[in-house]
């Protein structure tokens, strides 16, 4: 099902897309200030002084992705790969809800989610490094539990 047969031989065109997409992602998170946890916490602070910044970021992103992803439904395959790698699950299940609640608790405590955490590495802040190490720890624990 994988679009690439061997990771060792990533075509240059694919590399260009992966690198430019990653850099654009980092730039967008920086420009929108989503890299700053206090911006995110300001959005979550609905009972106090509310900061709608995150809503504008979502609106900007969705204004591009909604038409783009809907257009993707019209074409049979992506421009440079054999098929669209779609998520296997389509039904609502307990893991989706419980997982989203747990993620929300962590996100609400620190105001940091995975993408912004990576961009925030640029400021050399120990709390960010600890967050990322713990995040990988949490993923590791989940993977281990899956094996039982």
């Amino acid at each position: 099902m994988e679009t690439e047969t061997k990771a060792k031989s990533i075509p240059t065109s694919h590399l260009l897309i992966i690198i430019s997409s990653g850099i654009l992602f980092g730039l967008g998170l920086s420009l929108s200030e989503m890299v700053n946890p206090s911006r995110v916490l300001g959005f979550l602070n609905v009972l106090g002084t509310w900061d709608p910044t995150l809503l504008f970021v979502m609106a900007g992103a969705l204004s591009v992705t909604i038409p783009g992803f809907q257009y993707a439904k019209l074409i049979k395959k992506p421009f440079l790969a054999i098929n669209f790698s779609m998520p296997a699950k389509s039904d609502l299940d307990r893991d989706l809800i419980v997982g989203a609640v747990i993620f929300g608790i962590g996100w609400g405590l620190a105001g940091i989610c995975p993408g912004p955490a990576l961009v925030a590495l640029n400021v050399f802040e120990i709390n960010i490094v600890v967050f990322i190490l713990a995040m990988f720890g949490g993923m590791f624990v989940y993977n281990r539990l899956q094996k039982f």
Binding site: L24, G28, S32, G60
Partner: peptide, 21 residues
Amino acid sequence: SAFSGGIIIGFAALLMFLGLG
């Protein structure tokens, strides 16, 4: 800047999806 940043993020995601699926 929030809206523009969002547009850039959207393009990044779209590039990966339309280009590599």
